[in-house]
């Protein structure tokens, strides 16, 4: 794995390498190099299996982290390719030409995180959330609890007590 990373470092701007376990490594690549990097990995280095493509919302850094989990079935190693993109104008090049199934992932990311992949087939079609009119729900600033409280009505009659406060009320209310 270390050899491969050294080799990749010569050709690409590879950063933040983390050797998570024997057969799994994570690294960060700049957005503009990402697709050529991934293509290189697929076509040259044997990372032919796209395991997942997903995003992590680092709202505090105003960034989305796209994670392309690539697997080399021959060598049985994984490479987690992180691409950090701007959260405000979330857009990324599509990789559906490399893996057919990437289009599904990208469609989901478009819907759940609001990350656009121009050119990806049916990327703007509703995937899971038909008729959704709120912000993309997997963004960190979407509050599921608040949403459900606004959307559904709570069951009446539920009331709880904090043990410490309740004991104060009962045992030493004057203080």
């Amino acid at each position: 794995m270390k050899d491969l990373i050294q080799k990749l470092k010569k050709r690409f701007d590879v950063n933040d390498v983390v050797y998570q376990k024997d057969n799994q490594t994570y690294l960060t690549i700049a957005k503009d190099q990402a697709v050529s990097f991934i293509t290189h990995l697929k076509d040259v280095e044997g990372f032919t299996h796209l395991v997942i493509l997903t995003a992590v919302d680092w709202i505090e850094d105003n960034e989305f982290q796209l994670t392309y989990m690539l697997n080399n079935p021959g060598k049985k190693v994984d490479l987690g390719v992180r691409v950090l993109i701007d959260r405000e104008e979330a857009e990324m090049e599509s990789i559906h030409h490399l893996w057919k199934t990437a289009a599904t992932y990208q469609r989901e990311l478009r819907e759940m995180f609001g990350i656009d992949f121009p050119g990806s087939p049916r990327v703007n079609e509703d995937f899971i959330l038909e008729g959704w009119d709120d912000i993309p729900p997997y963004r960190r600033d979407f509050d599921t609890k608040e949403y459900s409280e606004q959307t559904y009505y709570p069951r009446p009659g539920r009331k709880t007590h904090d043990p410490a406060e309740y004991m104060k009320k009962k045992l030493y209310p004057e203080e």
Binding site: R155, R158, K159, T160, H161, P163, Y166, M167, K170, L171
Partner: peptide, 25 residues
């Protein structure tokens, strides 16, 4: 789960007198 007062259970030192009520819904 809600913690609720229960008849017969007094609040005293070491015991809040509350007991769990479970919503099976």
């Amino acid at each position: 789960i809600d913690m609720v007062p229960v008849e017969g259970e007094e609040t005293e030192e070491g015991d809040s007198g509350l007991r769990p009520r479970i919503d099976y819904g």
